[in-house]
């Protein structure tokens, strides 16, 4: 954004900035909101055992915060904040974490996804297992949602602006 005309009076200045950047209000408010949305996502995830919430909801909320960032600041900025390689890793890591929890319980002498054998105390074993698979769900859902948005967002539209 270039500097406004120096001959302008002080009362004209805000209007000049607003004319150059019509989305300034959106930018300011979303800069305030995006960290809150992300923190809320993590709260929903880690408090999911005690109240409504869990990996699925938290994954979608985290993805929504990145999508909001991309909508306001552009897709290239969002790709610098949440790079595409992280998506590829996250997608597979989530499924592997879930399946891996099952395999670990399998190797420790229980059935596949039987968390009771993960610790000597069966109850803490259940807790460990649920925490691990919820993390896997969080990784997979967040990455897939952001991947889908990136795929649609970076496709070049063939229609012209006159169609709007």
């Amino acid at each position: 954004m270039s500097a406004p005309d120096p001959k302008m009076t002080e009362s004209e200045l805000p209007h000049a900035y607003a004319a150059r950047d019509p989305h300034v209000l959106l930018r300011v408010i979303s800069k305030f909101l995006i960290p809150l949305i992300a923190i809320f996502g993590f709260y929903v995830h880690f408090h999911g055992e005690y109240s409504a919430g869990g990996g699925f909801q938290a994954g979608v909320i985290l993805a929504a915060s990145v999508i909001l960032y991309a909508l306001i600041f552009g897709l290239d900025e969002a790709k610098r904040a949440f790079p595409p390689w992280l998506i590829r890793v996250g997608m597979s890591l989530g499924v592997l974490l879930y399946g891996g929890t099952g395999v670990v319980s399998f190797l420790k002498g229980g059935e596949f996804l039987n968390y009771s054998v993960l610790n000597e105390n069966a109850i803490s074993g259940q807790h460990y297992g649920i925490i691990a698979i919820e993390l896997g769900v969080l990784c997979a859902v967040t990455s897939v949602m952001i991947a889908i948005f990136y795929a649609f967002g970076s496709r070049q539209p063939e229609t012209s602006d006159e169609d709007w």
């Binding site: 869990g54 699925f56 994954g59 979608v60 859902v141 897939v144 949602m145 889908i148």
Partner: peptide, 10 residues
């Protein structure tokens, strides 16, 4: 239904 919703959007 919780899981069906997320699968539905995918």
């Amino acid at each position: 239904i919780l899981t069906a919703i997320v699968v539905g959007v995918a």
